[in-house]
Amino acid sequence: MNKTKLYKLIFIIAIYSAAFTLLLISIKNYTSYLSTYKSNKTTQHTKVLSSTKHIEKANCINKIQKNIAKNVLRLHVIANSDSDNDQNLKLKVRDSILHELQTGLNTATSPAQAKQYVASKFQNIKNTANYTIHQNGYSYSVKVFIQNRYFPVKTYGDLTFPAGYYDALCVEIGKAAGHNWWCVLFPSLCFENATTATVPDESKAKLKNSLTREEYDSLEKPQHTKNDGKNTADVKIRCGIYDVFTNN
């Protein structure tokens, strides 16, 4: 074999080697790209499913809260300020209002009746609050009205109400710049024990009769025992197959 033929053979082998090497590199890059693409698609699909699940959870809990809100009337008392004296006065006004309304609201069988009764007693409520305020040496003014207001999550005995908007009897003392106090007027979750808001069995029965099973179950506050033996509550709202507060 002469040198010319040898050089041609070497050149051809080099060309084929380079081409084969480029082919291997291309296959490797394509495999890597395909793996990354599949991974990204899986991640995106998971994010979409997660987002959809959270939206469904939010819609479900919002629906349950609105249905519960239709069946209750709450009380919202706001103190003049956060001073100890004004906060103590707020509680005295609260007690006087609960005493004023207790008998009539206990006979109400629906939220509409409860609202109608409370509206008819606006002047009595205002007079009672004013009397309590003056008896304790203050001259604050009082505003009394029913309004749809936002309430945070709140527990009464073994029932926990979700955050959201509820109709409420609002009592604003003076500047109404202090911490507030609230309970549920109908069904009467305030009256059995205004300090601890222990839930009367009769009120539970009214709630059960006016709510669906799912809505009432969502109010139940499961109890767990800690190592020190004390009970602590996990707030849960069950929404079909979704456990909204624990599977976020």
Rank of each mutant, 00 (worst) to 15 (best):
T46E: 14
A177C: 07
C239W: 08
S139F: 10
N209I: 05
A163T: 02
E100Y: 04
R238F: 09
K90W: 03
K5A: 08
S51F: 10
V93A: 03
N193T: 05
V199E: 00
Q135Y: 06
T107P: 10
G178H: 12
I27A: 06
S139C: 00
D217T: 09
Y30C: 02
S83R: 01
N130E: 14
H179M: 09
D158A: 02
P162F: 03
I10D: 01
Q65W: 14
T107N: 13
H54Y: 11
N62F: 11
Y30W: 13
Q102T: 12
V72G: 01
C183V: 04
V184H: 10
K47T: 01
I12E: 06
K57G: 02
K3E: 08
N71C: 04
T225W: 02
I241H: 14
W181P: 13
K236V: 05
A18Q: 12
I97S: 02
L101A: 03
W181G: 04
Y166S: 00
K221N: 06
T196G: 03
S110L: 09
I15W: 11
K175S: 08
F245T: 00
I146C: 10
T246L: 07
I146V: 14
F186M: 04
Y166R: 06
G240S: 12
F11W: 12
T46H: 15
A119H: 11
V171W: 11
L23C: 10
Y7P: 00
K53P: 01
T225H: 02
G157K: 04
G137I: 08
Q87T: 03
E214T: 15
S210T: 14
T196H: 13
N209Y: 12
S17M: 13
F20T: 09
G174C: 10
A19T: 09
T36D: 14
T4V: 10
T31S: 11
N85R: 07
I237D: 04
C170P: 13
T109Q: 11
S110I: 09
S218W: 10
E214R: 15
T109S: 08
A69I: 03
P111N: 06
N85V: 05
T128E: 09
K66M: 05
F191L: 03
I125H: 03
V171G: 04
N59C: 01
V93R: 07
Q65C: 01
Q123G: 00
E100D: 14
A114S: 05
K121F: 00
I10K: 15
H179T: 13
H54N: 08
L211Q: 12
N71S: 13
L9P: 05
G178V: 07
C239P: 14
H99K: 15
G157N: 08
